[in-house]
Design a protein around this nucleic acid. Sequence first.
DNA 1: CAGAATCCGTTAAGATACTG
DNA 2: CAGTATCTTAACGGATTCTG
Lengths: 128, 128
Amino acid sequence: MSEPGRGDLFSPQCPTRRLLDRIGTKWTSMAVKVLAEASPDEVRFAELQRRMAGVSQKMLSVTLQNMARDGLVDRRVEPTVPPRVHYRLTPLGLSLEEPLAMVRAWAEEHMAEIDLANRRSEEAAAAG
Amino acid sequence: MSEPGRGDLFSPQCPTRRLLDRIGTKWTSMAVKVLAEASPDEVRFAELQRRMAGVSQKMLSVTLQNMARDGLVDRRVEPTVPPRVHYRLTPLGLSLEEPLAMVRAWAEEHMAEIDLANRRSEEAAAAG
DNA sequence: CAGAATCCGTTAAGATACTG
DNA sequence: CAGTATCTTAACGGATTCTG
């Protein structure tokens, strides 16, 4: 029994499956990258949104809430008027940047090959 | 201009975004793992399904089609009755196993911390 | 005014069942 | 084994509203 990472790799409780469900969401890996670049400094919500072009206020809010719930970021509210909210990667969140950097490196190195394969598949489909 | 992987990291054409869209699908990373373990040998469709407990025939078929289109797997049909279809990772697909292994390693090492953070968040919400 | 919360519509992954 | 049809669920995003 219990080949580790084998038998339970296929259940919904599989840690890899659950991690991919998180970093597979649209803005999480991007937030990790931006926050890691600023680490260990904090980044304000508005600044985060500025550095993550295309993210809406709502989606950034949701993403950061999920990351805070997961213990990936710390959230600090400055009791001013209006309030300013600052975010910073936890050590756990910072450690996640490592595998994410590997994924990014592979993507930048190899996605062109995937594109090429897709074009060839289209041609083959058109010819066939 | 052109900080590589920065400005265009936020467009839908961002290679990292597009890679995550692929390995974020439920069965792709699992298929890479199983096929990598067998590499360089081929694996039959039925054998793949057996080793990927929980995957339906359709989802495995769709997953393998997408991977073949992306050039991650080679597909070989044995002209028997009934036909037997064999799959094998391409060098490209095999290279993807490396960053995926990093992701798996992080997940197995740290997902428990994420679970702990979630429990604490629940408690804090219940108390607050 | 910053940022969170809510309503709502769109889109697509995924599962199930059935057909070829 | 592959393809089709239908259903459910959830991510995503827009627009709006609420709070200090």
